[in-house]
Design a protein around this nucleic acid. Structure first.
Length: 290
DNA sequence: TACCAGGTTAGCG
DNA sequence: CGCTAACATGGT
């Protein structure tokens, strides 16, 4: 990073605790991209961050262009560092899941903005990840606010935008979404925006820990264009319901191949969603194949 | 060029 | 219920 003034080094975080590459590349978020071989850049809220796991003076740490205040009040929570993942271990003899857990050590479930997660996973249906990312980028560029880019030469030619807020999207007509690449999902997003704004779907209420993941999923599925998979993703990644287990085509293939078509999600208890991410990562980058 | 992607809906039987 | 065609768009 060129701008030393705003870079902090968070000591004491190794890759077992928080592996940025695994966490940012296991399909839960769409606004982070690789910079070089180990660094990542992405938008969280109203700022662009560049982050990396590093070893400095023999000590593991996270290097990130954040202020201490941003780390404490925003990013610490975003990376779910309040949760002790060493306490979240699979408690059964599930061979595939245990292997996935081992290979996926360091993956965390990010605490993403619930509205952003809702729109993002509506867009995700029937799209591949590069397309999802580019569509979200266009959506942000069209309706978000421009963000000052980090003082980094390799990002100089890029532009960054905040995720559009609900009020902005609620003012739009369906025709305003032409050219974004949303396809038939355009109306789903407008409907969701209005439902969330008028609190017929109250994301803040659903995020409350007292609300079960099942109830959150059931409620989210009232939205047009939100079926079981997308609802589970919103609940897991946007509402932090860690026991939710989204079943997409990849997880379904795993279930067919390694579980004889039948998986007992309840056997993973309250960490089912984390196990799901381990599995997704295992299929994408681990030794397991289909 | 075709095929297909972190699915969901509506409309059948 | 269970099954399935249709769905917009662009990446590979």
């Amino acid at each position: 990073l060129d701008d030393e003034k705003t870079v902090i080094c968070i000591e004491g975080i190794d890759k077992q605790t928080l592996d940025l590459s695994k966490t940012l590349d296991c399909g839960q978020c769409f606004r982070w991209n690789k910079l070089g071989t180990t660094s990542w850049y992405g938008v969280v809220g109203d700022k662009v961050y560049v982050a990396d796991n590093q070893i400095i003076d023999n000590k593991p740490c996270i290097v990130i262009n954040a202020t201490a205040e941003e780390w404490e009040n925003k990013l610490y929570k975003y990376f779910d560092l309040d949760t002790d993942y060493s306490q979240l271990k699979i408690d059964n003899n599930d061979k595939f899941a245990l292997k996935a857990q081992q290979d996926g050590q360091g993956i965390r479930i990010l605490k993403q903005d619930a509205w952003e997660a809702t729109v993002s996973f509506i867009i995700s249906q029937r799209n591949n990840i590069p397309k999802i990312k580019s569509t979200i980028d266009k959506f942000c560029k069209a309706f978000g606010n421009k963000i000052e880019e980090p003082n980094l030469s390799s990002l100089k030619d890029k532009e960054f935008y905040t995720f559009p807020d609900i009020d902005t999207i609620c003012k739009l007509d369906i025709a305003d979404l032409d050219g974004i690449g949303l396809g038939y999902r355009d109306e789903y997003i407008l409907i969701a925006a209005h439902a969330i704004k008028n609190k017929s779907i109250d994301l803040d209420k659903l995020a409350n820990q007292a609300i079960s993941g099942e109830l959150a999923v059931q409620t989210l599925m009232e939205l047009k264009g939100v079926g079981p998979k997308v609802a589970n993703c919103i609940a897991l990644f946007g509402l932090h319901k860690l026991d939710m287990f989204p079943i997409d085509v990849w997880i379904q293939r795993i279930i067919d191949e390694y579980y004889n078509g039948n998986i007992d999600i309840g056997s993973y208890g309250k960490l089912a969603g984390l196990v799901q991410q381990y599995m997704f990562y295992e299929i994408k980058y681990g030794s397991a194949c289909l």
